[in-house]
Design a binder for these strands. Structure first.
Lengths: 241, 241
DNA sequence: CTAGCACCTATAGCATCGCTATATGAACTG
DNA sequence: CAGTTCATATAGCGATGCTATAGGTGCTAG
């Protein structure tokens, strides 16, 4: 009805679905609404997307690419940990800007459904954490750290979405963010009398070396040697604090 | 059909809904399924609960009371922070035991829908944190700490639910849990750090690890393994830029 | 005992939902 | 121009959430 531009119906369906999904606050969006807004009839939808969920997945995928693009845009700050902070903030902002989309992406994930997007988000975070690890700023395995940080990031975003926009307190985000990053980083942390929270420098160095090795393809060791070497490295860096 | 006990229809509807919701993995549950299992016809449902969502809310409320009861059961440990750890673990376990119920409770929360349950959960956590604060073990306001911890707790639980049960790694939970508790506790801490020492390469990391390994007698590797490991480390360290 | 009354439940059906069997048109290929 | 493939439309099926209406059930009052 209003999206009758010259765009191909597939695109019009995507936009219509995204638009309806965005404005209808939580209420279910019917395929008939979508097809009508797109100026198309039902079979067209099912021809292109197979399923209502297929269409929604496509919308989510598009939104996710936008999200990833936003995350990748500002990487080049020299400080990896600072980049992770911005990544966190960007994640939260994305969720608050498009709450419905975000809820579909992260609020309804079920085992068989789609760990795909979550896995991508984890990979993105891990990639950034690898730089921190290579710089010796990481206390734990990048993968574990990425999962942990992302989990907290999602939890905070969901909680912020849940409360009315007027009384959203972003301090919840920054506080949790810094708590997670601090707990994961190899910063001084020192001075604490209780002091077993920081891990030994062996572990930190091993983690750093591991990340550095995987980043640069050193040819000082044969592949079989490297394999064993990495295994030992992993054993060291996985040792309990 | 099978829940024809002498229980009143209202209770039978609740149990039928809970049972169907629990076993149907994510698939939508129809009112017809529920009423049939409860041995009741449609209007009965709407007379008692007004709405399908009303019925689900009742199920959620019942489940939440069970959850709260579980949380309150073991409070009396002398150490508040230890209690919070158990509270966290109990939360995660509840989510993993009844994933569908949990997803309805925490996965779909929208501003107008029901911050009620979340608020209750926050209050529960805050109550426990107040004891920690009274003992001088807290670094921030109990309310903020409660919100932050609960957000991370929900995020972790959702992430664990999202991945197949076979490869669930509970270490994600304990790691995030301890990170949050540590960041909130009255240790020196100081959340955001700025310290960055220059970026390091494979060589630098290897040298660092070498030094660290020789300084501390790690027992993760046998002596023969360690010897070969150090040799390789040396080879890497000696490699040209 | 019966009349009234509030409560609870059943019959039947509406509007809408996601989806599809089938057919028609357009566009490219030989 | 014939044949094939892709894309859209017509019409309708089964299932869904929900309801207008009516029919029992148990009570207390007369």
């Amino acid at each position: 009805m209003s999206l009758d531009g010259q765009l191909p119906p597939k695109m019009r369906l995507l936009r219509a679905a995204a638009e309806l999904l965005a404005k209808s606050a939580g209420a279910p969006v019917s395929t008939r609404q979508i097809t009508q807004l797109a100026g198309v009839t039902a079979p067209t939808l099912y021809h292109h997307f197979g399923d209502k969920e297929g269409l929604f997945d496509a919308v989510v995928a598009a939104g996710f690419e936008e999200y990833v693009a936003g995350e990748r845009d500002f990487a080049p700050s020299g400080k990896p940990l600072e980049d992770i902070r911005r990544m966190w903030d960007n994640h939260v902002q994305f969720g608050l800007n498009q709450p419905e989309l975000y809820l579909v992406m992260f609020g309804n994930i079920r085992p068989e459904n789609r760990p795909a997007i979550v896995a991508d988000a984890e990979a993105l975070m891990e990639e950034m954490l690898n730089k921190a690890a290579a710089a010796g700023q990481l206390n734990v395995q990048p993968r574990e750290a990425a999962r942990s940080i992302l989990a907290a990031n999602v939890g905070v975003t969901l909680m912020l979405i849940a409360e009315p926009a007027t009384e959203r307190n972003l301090e919840l985000s920054t506080m949790t963010r810094d708590a997670m990053i601090f707990a994961v980083s190899a910063e001084p942390a020192s001075g604490s009398a209780a002091g077993d929270s920081g891990r030994s420098s062996v572990v930190v160095a091993a983690i750093a070396l591991n990340a550095a090795l995987q980043a640069s393809h050193s040819d000082q060791l044969s592949s079989s040697e490297l394999k064993l070497f990495l295994e030992w490295l992993h054993r060291i860096s996985a040792s309990p604090a």
